[in-house]
């Protein structure tokens, strides 16, 4: 297990390779379909959100307010990342992201941006909303709640040892491409 702390340095990110299991401690920002489209179309990040060296989490969590009026995240697994493929490369480039967490992997444009700008794609276990929510110590605030709705908002999560696996590294390697090619070749034997 490789321990990572945010903000991530370029050197730390370039030291990672496909198949590495990581535990991330620090700050994660959620962002999914609406946020990606908004930033792609030239929208500005809200005050207080700095993605430089940061990690963006493709996630639409379930968050409720507890009795004391604090946000409490009750479920927070990853959402499918490929929907952000048209936008992700640009957000890596323009905002200095060092890590993207999601599920299902992404395409060549994102893989290219990871290599060029120094970023990795980390795969969290899809559906593991409780195990992952347990790693969230605090939810300091939320942005774009009114504009995009709760699942699509930018939530700030303070996390401790959030588990994810590097499936696309900064050297042009993608576990998703490898597994697709191998499984396609295997299937040809049986049909």
């Amino acid at each position: 297990m490789i321990e990572l702390s945010t903000p991530l340095s370029e050197a730390a990110v370039r030291g990672l390779k496909v198949g590495d299991e990581a535990a991330i401690t620090g700050m994660l920002y959620t962002g999914r379909d609406a946020v990606h489209k908004y930033l792609h179309e030239g929208g500005k990040l809200p005050d207080g959100v700095n993605l430089s060296g940061g990690v963006l989490y493709h996630c639409g969590p379930v968050v409720i307010k507890d009795a004391a009026g604090n946000w409490k995240c009750v479920a927070a697994g990853p959402t499918t990342s490929i929907r952000e493929e048209p936008y992700q490369w640009q957000i890596i480039r323009d905002f200095g992201l060092r890590g993207v967490i999601g599920k299902g992997g992404m395409g060549d444009q994102t893989l290219g941006a990871c290599r060029e700008y120094g970023c990795v794609y980390l795969h969290a276990v899809g559906g593991a909303a409780q195990v992952l929510a347990e790693c969230i110590q605090r939810v300091p605030t939320v942005h774009f709640m009114e504009q995009f709705g709760a699942p699509e908002a930018i939530w700030e999560f303070e996390v401790v040892r959030f588990p994810a696996i590097v499936t696309m590294d900064a050297h042009g390697n993608s576990l998703h491409k490898e597994v697709f090619a191998a499984s396609q070749a295997e299937l040809a034997k049986y049909v």
């Binding site: 996630c59 927070a76 593991a128 409780q130």
Partner: peptide, 22 residues
């Protein structure tokens, strides 16, 4: 991954919270 899935199933039941956020 399968171990995390199994832990997640136990935790969701124990806490009576959604297995998956979706």
């Amino acid at each position: 991954a399968m171990r995390i899935i199994d832990q997640n199933i136990a935790l969701a039941k124990q806490k009576s919270q959604p297995v998956c956020q979706d």
